[in-house]
Design a protein around this nucleic acid. Structure first.
Lengths: 199, 199
DNA sequence: ACCTGAACACCGTTCAAGT
DNA sequence: ACCTGAACACCGTTCAAGT
């Protein structure tokens, strides 16, 4: 076996520090320099552990979706579990102000969280590919809700035109959005059928 | 009437220049400085027209969703139109590499594009609030697809770990994703009903 | 070997002149 | 009035010393 060098700074620690900054101050406060500063080192060791900022964001996205979905209890039906699963995912992504910025375009981040749902669907009679497809549909539903409904934090420093006419005539409130999300899930889950070959 | 000063640089021109850079080189190439340079001026006039970068991105998002959806032809049913509408929106958002970055969190950008669909749904028997809700569901479906399936451009400069195990065991191909998007729309549209009070 | 300090080429934004 | 040049406080990233 090769000897493992003893390091006082691990990649884990770097990601952890980045997540702390992210949860406290939002994604734009996360920089290679602020992460390094929080760890009390220069930027160089951070680069040595995580490679570059893109890789750090990848790792943060993975971390964010670790252990978020509930376990599948065989006593419950797959439809019930699918709704629980999607709601847990939404709560996680909607809970942090700009989690969607971190998660968008990083399909691989969903892989771990998907596994219990895919298994539950297979237990419910879905073929493997159909289960994967159904899971993807639910991911889209969650991601769409989060990306559209999560407002980005603002600073409002110099608005040239105070209010555009027609600014939000078709808006809905937060509680309505919540109920509507549940409706979306019910329509989607209700429309899925293990016995129907899809796509 | 107050006299209108004659200007050789308008807010329109600024947004147009920004959109050109965005479509050619992606969102990260759009900076107040690159936009100014393309217009042959210093950053200051750009700030004078659009306020700040956040406001420029808002205007770009509005611009991106202008005139993208087809008109509703009364000969067609609302279900058919809803699918056409969502597909047009998806093509627009998926066509530019990181349009979702621009569109995420900016609910107001969807308002104009939503109007024809809301009208079509009302013509199909939906009450106004039910039509707005159904439209929102479709926006989520489109946004979710785009935000998850659109890969971000990469540079791959210094990957510390070449491949994580379990990288994408549950991935699907692009064509599958397209067909799956259509399935998503059919399930969603099929589940909508003007006569059912929802939410 | 691994760190720090300094540097390079950028950002968003604003200030003090210039015309 | 509106521009430009320069500046401030940041970025991501890398280089040349230092230990």
């Amino acid at each position: 076996v090769t000897g493992r060098k003893e390091l006082d700074l691990t990649g884990e620690e770097v990601v952890h520090a980045a997540i702390e900054i992210f949860e406290a101050e939002g994604l734009e406060a996360v920089s290679m320099r602020t992460v390094a500063a929080r760890l009390g080192v220069s930027p160089v060791p951070v680069y040595r552990r995580v490679g570059n900022k893109e890789a750090l964001l990848d790792a943060m996205a993975d971390h964010l979706l670790t252990d978020v979905v509930p376990a599948f209890k065989p006593t419950q039906g797959w439809r019930e579990y699918a709704i629980e699963w999607a709601t847990a995912l939404r709560d996680r992504l909607g809970g942090t102000t700009d989690a969607w910025l971190l998660i968008g375009g990083r399909r691989s981040a969903y892989v771990e969280a998907s596994k219990p749902l895919v298994e539950a669907l297979q237990a419910g009679g879905f073929a493997e590919d159909a289960a994967v497809q159904a899971c993807r549909l639910l991911i889209w539903a969650v991601a769409g809700f989060v990306v559209v409904e999560t407002r980005r934090p603002k600073a409002a420093p110099r608005p040239r035109k105070t209010s555009r006419p027609g600014g939000s005539p078709h808006g809905i409130s937060d509680e309505e959005a919540d109920q509507l999300f549940m409706l979306h899930l019910r329509v989607l889950v209700g429309g899925l059928d293990p016995d129907e070959q899809q796509a």
